[in-house]
Each structure stands twice: as C-alpha cells, then as structure tokens.
Amino acid sequence: MREGVMGQQATILVTGVNGQVGYELLRSLQGLGRVVGLDRAALDLDSPDAIRRVVREVKPTIIVNPAAYTAVDKAESDVERAQRLNVQAPALLAEEAKRLGAALVHYSTDYVFDGTKDTPYVETDTVNPQNVYGKTKLEGEQAILASGCDHLVLRTSWVYGTRGKNFLLTMLKLGAERDEVSVVADQIGAPTWSRTIAASTAHVLAQATHAADRGQWWAQQSGVYHLTAGGATSWHGFAEAIFELSSLAKRPVVKPIPASSYRTPAIRPANSRVSNDKFAAAFGVRAPDWREALALCMQ
C-alpha cells in the first residue's frame, strides 16, 4: 500500500465539507496530513467522471466520505438520485481507492436494520432496511466491501449539529413558534452530534497515520463499525432535552405521540440502538453520552 511508506505525509480527501459531518471533519482532521476538503462545486458526486478525475488529481492516501443523500422521506420518491449518491458514488470512490492503494472511510446508518430487535444491534446482526435511504446505504456498504479496498464503514445514527437540516434545528425553530410540539415517543436511538463523529474519526485516523506499518494497520482494522453517542432516548426525550438546554424565553409543551400518529413516506425503525463495543475495543475510543454531547453542542 502506497501510504505504508514510513514518514510519508498522508493526503486526506474529504467530500461534502459543507454538510454537517464534513464541516466538522475538515477541522478535526487538521494536523494528520494534507487535508483536501471539497464541496459539491469542487466534487460533484452525481458525476462518475468527476469522481474519477478529482481522485486521480488529488492522489489521496485516505478518502473520507461523509457526503450522502440523507433526505430520508424524499428518497422514497427520488430513488435514482439516492442510488447515485449512496451506492454509485461510494462504489466509485472505493474502486479509485483500490486502484491508488488508498483507504476509504465511509459513513452509513442504523437504518440498515429493521428495528425489531429488543437490544442494541451489533455489526454481525442481520440487515433488513425498511426504506429507500437504508437500502441505498446498505448497497453502498456492500459495494465498498466488494471492492477490496482498505476501508472503515462507520454506521451512525440520528445525526445533528449546528448547521444543515436536522432534528435539533427543527425543534429550536418550532419551539420558538409554538406553545406545543408533538414528537414521536416510541422510536429509540442515540442522537449523535456531528462533531462527535468527526472527533472519533480523527482519533482513529491518527492511529492509522502514525502506525509503524500503515498497510498492516489497515489490513487488520478494515471493516464495519458502529459509531454513535452513548446512551439512548426517544425523539420525544431528545426534544425535551433540547428545550431544557435552550435559551428560549418560553419552553413549549412536548406532547408524546406514537409513530402511527405521525405518518411519513419512509418507515423508520422502532429500535435504532446500536452497540459501540467493537469500535471501542478496536480503537480505544468511546463517544460521550448523548446528553453530554448535546449540552456541549448547544453551548
């Protein structure tokens, strides 16, 4: 592997740097090598030719790909674009990584599971996505594994941050406008701050770039891992915590409702909890509890 040469500085290509996770990655990865951050204007993941051209120009030793089609409900009617961004783009990035002798870090989702398990999902559990978003993300994972490139596929959940479209920002907007907000209380997961994902990724890539034999490190560590905040709550519990920590003059009442009362185009799993034990054992990193991270984010 080309990046296995001792002393060679890593070149890290980061996609989607205007997104929630990409924005944080651009900051967290500084100091690990030459970081090349590209937004959609610089790298159009809808275009196979653009992907090949840019990767071959940059010649990265590590590609970090947080870019994705993440509009879960819209994906139900926009299947082709979801497939292009969630399946074809990562497949091409993996193919180019393999050709260069580079590694690919890619983010996936808890939505690859159907949510019928009573306990947190582990990486070896049977996948059974229930919506287009989950299906395309799973196909993207499978394409990366099939490529044979060195890889880390990191499944996360309920991602939020201070930019983009996410549950935190939606709740703060609704809370400022309404006296009462109805929120689903029978779907459970781990709200995960985008900065937690970026910081955890940086810890792992620091180990990779400082390894005595980087090629051997990737050979040993390549695989699928779960990476979420610690603990779990419902969307209702998440909303209540947001309002408790907010600076809103008047807190809205958060009314718990069943998912059956809030119909959406995409089916969402009732249980989105995943176990982070494999990630912790492999890299010695465990993300903070979701409440702790939310408090830091909202500061």
Score class of each variant (00 low, 15 high):
Lys137Ile: 13
Cys149Gly: 06
Gly215Phe: 10
Trp218Glu: 03
Val132Ser: 01
Ala190Lys: 01
Arg214Glu: 05
Leu154Phe: 06
Gly215Tyr: 07
Asp186Leu: 09
Lys135Phe: 00
Ala190Asn: 13
Thr136Val: 13
Trp193Asn: 11
Ser147Leu: 05
Tyr225Pro: 02
Gly161Ile: 06
Leu172Pro: 08
Arg178Trp: 12
Gly175Ser: 12
Arg214Tyr: 08
Phe167Trp: 04
Ile188Gln: 14
Gln142Lys: 15
Asn166Arg: 07
Tyr225His: 09
Asp213Ala: 11
Ser147Lys: 04
Gln130Cys: 10
Ile188Gly: 04
Trp193Ile: 00
Leu174Gly: 00
Arg178Gly: 01
Tyr160Ile: 09
Asn131Glu: 06
Arg155Lys: 12
His203Tyr: 09
Val184Glu: 10
Gly189Ile: 04
His151Asp: 01
Asp186Cys: 12
Glu141Ile: 10
Ser194Asn: 09
Leu154Cys: 03
Ser182Glu: 15
Gly231Phe: 03
Thr170Leu: 13
Arg155Pro: 04
Gln130Leu: 14
Asn131Gln: 03
Thr233Val: 03
Ala232Tyr: 10
Tyr133Phe: 14
Thr136Met: 04
Val183Lys: 10
Ala199Trp: 00
Arg163Ala: 08
Ile197Arg: 06
Val153His: 00
Gln187Glu: 15
Ala202Lys: 07
Gln207Tyr: 01
Tyr160Thr: 02
Thr201Pro: 08
Tyr160Glu: 03
Thr196Gln: 12
Thr209Asp: 01
Thr201Ala: 09
Arg155Tyr: 05
Asp179Pro: 02
Gly230Thr: 03
Ala232Asn: 07
Leu138His: 06
Val183Glu: 07
His210Arg: 14
Arg178Asn: 14
Glu180Thr: 15
Lys165Ile: 13
His151Met: 06
Lys173Trp: 04
Gln216Val: 10
Glu139Phe: 06
Thr201Tyr: 12
Pro191Arg: 09
Phe167Gly: 10
Val204Asp: 03
Leu174Glu: 14
Ser157Leu: 02
Ser222Gln: 14
Glu177Lys: 15
Trp218Lys: 12
Asp213Pro: 05
His236Tyr: 06
Ile197Asn: 05
Ala232Gln: 09
Val184Asn: 07
Leu152Pro: 08
Gln142Asp: 10
Gly237Asp: 07
Leu174Ile: 00
Ala212His: 11
Trp158Gln: 12
Leu227Ala: 05
Gly189Phe: 01
Thr192Gly: 12
Thr162Gln: 14
Ser200Met: 12
Gln216Cys: 05
Gly237Met: 04
Gly134Thr: 06
Gly230Asn: 10
Ala212Val: 13
Gln221Arg: 15
Gln221Cys: 12
Gln216Met: 07
Lys135Ser: 13
Ser157Cys: 14
Gly231Trp: 02
His203Ile: 00
Gln220Ser: 11
Ala229Asp: 04
Ser157Arg: 01
Thr233Tyr: 01
Met171Phe: 09
Gly230Ser: 09
Val153Glu: 00
Cys149Lys: 07
Thr156Trp: 03
Asn131Phe: 06
Glu177Tyr: 01
Ser234Cys: 11
Ala199Ile: 04
Gly230Phe: 08
Thr170Ser: 13
Thr228Leu: 03
Asp186Glu: 13
Trp158His: 13
Lys135Thr: 12
Glu180Arg: 15
Trp218Phe: 06
Gly215Asp: 14
Gly148Phe: 05
Lys173Phe: 03
Glu141Pro: 08
Arg214Gly: 13
Ala212Trp: 07
Leu174Ala: 15
